[in-house]
Design a protein around this nucleic acid. Structure first.
Length: 151
DNA sequence: GCCAACGTTGGC
DNA sequence: GCCAACGTTGGC
């Protein structure tokens, strides 16, 4: 089992939105970065644990715990010309983008980015590195446990 | 709104 | 295959 941090803009899908969805599950659509796509396609397994992170918002930070509930499959939004995430180079025969499904495990207390930055134990987390933009990053199991034990 | 970082594109 | 230009991300 692996551990991941997945960024979501709360104006798009917040932890409360996730909690309100059917089965408390969301398709992680809209990933248009090859490295992040490859994590979903090649490495994510059902049951993998996810830190659900709010980004690009007034209060960035960890908002809850989730898990991978379905293996990667083609992202529907790439086929829809009216959609923001439409990709003219993608076809049904040759999809370019995939997504997993993510299901809520628990809405936790909110752990702000500022707090994460304060723990020396987490200093090597990718999310904390200057210039990091990757929206899906693997998390070291010890870092995951450290964070969960403080939520 | 600024700006650093970095991924992508496309001409050559 | 190089690399300059451009676009996007995301914290502040």
């Amino acid at each position: 089992m692996r551990y991941w941090l997945m960024k979501s803009e709360p104006s798009d899908v917040s932890i409360d939105d996730l909690a309100a969805f059917p089965n408390q599950t969301v398709a992680w659509y809209g990933i248009r970065n090859y490295q992040a796509r490859n994590f979903m396609r090649d490495q994510m397994q059902v049951g993998d644990r996810v830190l659900f992170y709010h980004s690009s918002c007034p209060h960035p930070g960890i908002a809850g715990l989730a898990k991978v509930s379905r293996l990667a499959y083609p992202d529907e939004t790439q086929f829809d010309p009216s959609h923001h995430y439409f990709d003219p180079k993608a076809t049904r025969e040759n999809p370019r983008w995939v997504n997993v499904d993510v299901q809520l495990v628990e809405k936790t207390r909110f752990m702000p980015l500022q707090e994460l930055r304060g723990y020396p134990e987490l200093a090597s987390m990718r999310i904390l590195q200057r210039g990091n933009r990757l929206s899906i990053t693997p998390i070291d199991p010890r870092e995951y446990e450290f964070i969960v034990s403080r939520l």
